[in-house]
Design a protein around this nucleic acid. Structure first.
Length: 549
DNA sequence: CCACACCAGGAAACCTAAAA
DNA sequence: TTTTAGGTTTCCTGGTGTGG
């Protein structure tokens, strides 16, 4: 049975990747729901810098989306970005291991193994039982590469132990690192230090021997414990087909030391003195060269990361602005449809506003697309993108020609005056709740919930709050706490309350609204029947959008 | 009376350590 | 290594106390 540790060790060794990413993922205790995407984001703080860079260089966060309700203890899955995705038959057991090579990422599930390339395309999905899952996965991984692996062998004639390439063992085609019998006698080419040079001098000889272990590289066996060989009496003779080989001279155990081997031994002894130092220098050079490559690569990744992050932030701003514009547009459209000649706002002004909104929506949409395109050509046109983004961000929506000062947190800007008023609130809960009011109108809030999750007690699923705005509130709150010079621990504790405050605010608003509705029913029953339109307009004062945008 | 602030209950989600 | 059990946290909602 192959252990997870072995898989990881060997795969990483094989790939020359020294980083081990996100393993030990916690229990999945509910079924995967098809069509419910999640996002992967790595908690960078938990990794060393090199690990984080390695993960980023693979761009995992931007490439993988699992459809389903999966919990990870070392990272979470997120669907914020509209990426490619894969399904696992509507059900996933548990992700137990993640490992990767330069082309693909492997997720080892308890019940399924998913192999995919970094575009997110699943190219292999194997359904196996937990018992053989690791082995199956490893087989798949090594399938094409086994011939390049090495075997630690013992020759029967002189009991010498050598490391030879797997391809130098005749009739041997292992599927995994465990796919061999220690008892079986194989025919093995005597290992050559310089194959080509020696082949010119004499034909390579084949000797009988046994395999002690398999590994991804020659070094695999250097730190290994001494492996016991199987007693001669227990060895199995090679099969007839394997014996039927006239191409090479096969020398069985008990023969005198053959000629080729003697020559080789002498040559090796001669060379050893001078070659050792040469090899060391060569190795050092190789090492330095590789180190340089790694450094260069890491720098590139850092730069790319910075650029991508800037662009993503800017893009998010535009998206949220576009979203709020769309909401405005829809609200206005609705009102127009319902008409209301006496609604307090003339049709003309509504139409005008609509026109403006439509125009600006289109503008924003075009610009967002443009940014997306430019992100792909990040290397060549960064400065240009930044410039275009700047103008795009400054331009849109509000139409406020008298530019009010704004305070920015995350990707959201708060108008300075109300923000400063709110900042003077002595209570943290009120500070958060007021910010919520600043970003969402009461009507909007009453239709939403913090995360969009359905509550067992409620019939409807409410729209979640925009994550960017929530993040902005959290940042503003963090900033406030820092300015108050709290300890880090206190800040962390307080920050945990943000969501509660927001949820409470939503509930308060909802309660308030329902109370108002109740009163209205009462009014209808008794006296003044207010026009529906009037009510809508009075309530729908969008405190948020104008200010944010 | 109303709006606000906060608390409590319940289910789902999450985490972890022990058992198999 | 995998599964299970059970404790903890989070989220949403309903309810209550308080001050203007």
């Amino acid at each position: 049975m192959i252990s997870h540790e072995n898989i990881n060790k060997e795969v990483l060794k094989f790939c020359e990747i020294n980083y081990n990413v996100g393993y030990s993922i916690s229990k999945l205790d509910r079924p995967l729901k098809v069509g419910k995407p999640l996002e992967i984001s790595f908690p960078w703080d938990n990794y060393t810098e090199s690990e984080a860079l390695a993960i980023q260089s693979l761009n995992i966060a931007n490439k993988i989306i699992l459809y389903g309700n999966i919990k990870f203890s070392h990272f979470t899955v997120d669907t914020k970005n509209n990426n490619t995705l894969f399904l696992v038959n509507g059900k996933v057991g548990r992700v137990t291991k993640i490992f990767k090579n330069s082309e693909s990422l492997y997720l080892l599930f308890q019940e399924y193994k998913v192999v995919m390339d970094y575009s997110g395309t699943v190219w292999k999905l194997i359904n196996t039982t937990p018992a053989n899952s690791n082995e199956e996965c490893l087989k798949l991984y090594f399938k094409t590469k086994m011939s390049e692996f090495f075997a630690y062998v013992q020759f029967l004639d002189d009991r010498s132990r050598k490391v030879v390439p797997v391809k130098d063992i005749k009739h041997f085609d292992p599927k995994t690192l465990e796919d061999f019998s220690k008892k079986k006698i194989y025919k093995i080419y005597w290992p050559q230090e310089d194959d080509e040079a020696n082949l010119e001098k004499y034909e390579r000889s084949i000797y009988e021997g046994t395999i002690l272990d398999l590994g991804a590289s020659k070094e695999s066996f250097s730190k290994q414990k001494r492996i016991a060989s199987v007693p001669v009496t227990m060895l199995e003779s090679p099969s007839e087909t394997e014996l039927d080989d006239h191409s090479s001279k096969i020398l069985s155990m008990g023969n005198a030391l053959p000629q080729a081997k003697t020559i080789d031994l002498l040559q090796t002894m001669k060379k050893n003195l001078t070659q050792n130092s040469k090899i060391r220098i060569a190795q050092m050079k190789k090492f330095i060269f590789r180190k340089r490559k790694v450094d260069e690569y890491e720098n590139k990744i850092i730069n790319q990361k910075k650029k991508i992050k800037t662009l993503q932030n800017e893009n998010e701003v535009l998206k949220s602005k576009f979203a709020s514009l769309e909401t405005d547009f829809n609200t206005l459209k609705e009102k127009l449809n319902r008409d209301g000649s006496n609604a307090g706002i003339g049709e003309c002004s509504c139409t005008e506003m609509l026109k403006v909104l439509i125009q600006k929506s289109t503008e924003l949409d075009q610009k967002t697309t443009k940014i997306d395109q430019k992100t792909t050509e990040i290397d060549q046109k960064t400065t240009k993108i930044e410039a275009s983004l700047k103008t795009t961000v400054e331009e849109p929506s509000s139409g406020n020609k008298n530019k009010e000062k704004e305070i920015i947190f995350g990707s959201i800007s708060f108008p300075e005056k109300p923000f400063l008023t709110i900042s003077r609130r002595p209570k943290n809960s009120l500070f958060v709740k007021d910010l919520v009011s600043l970003l969402w109108s009461d009507e909007d809030l009453s239709q939403r919930s913090l995360t969009g999750k359905k509550h067992y007690n409620s019939k409807e699923i409410k729209q979640p709050l925009t994550p960017e705005k929530r993040f902005a509130i959290e940042e503003a709150f963090k900033d406030r706490l820092k300015k108050q010079q709290h300890h880090d621990a206190t800040i962390a504790l307080e920050l945990k309350l943000v969501n509660r405050y927001i949820a409470e605010k939503i509930n308060d608003v909802r309660k308030c609204n329902s109370r108002r509705n109740l009163n209205m029913t009462y009014d209808i029953q008794n006296k003044n029947i207010p026009r529906e339109e009037e009510k809508d307009f009075s309530e729908n004062e969008p405190t948020s959008n104008d200010m944010i945008n």
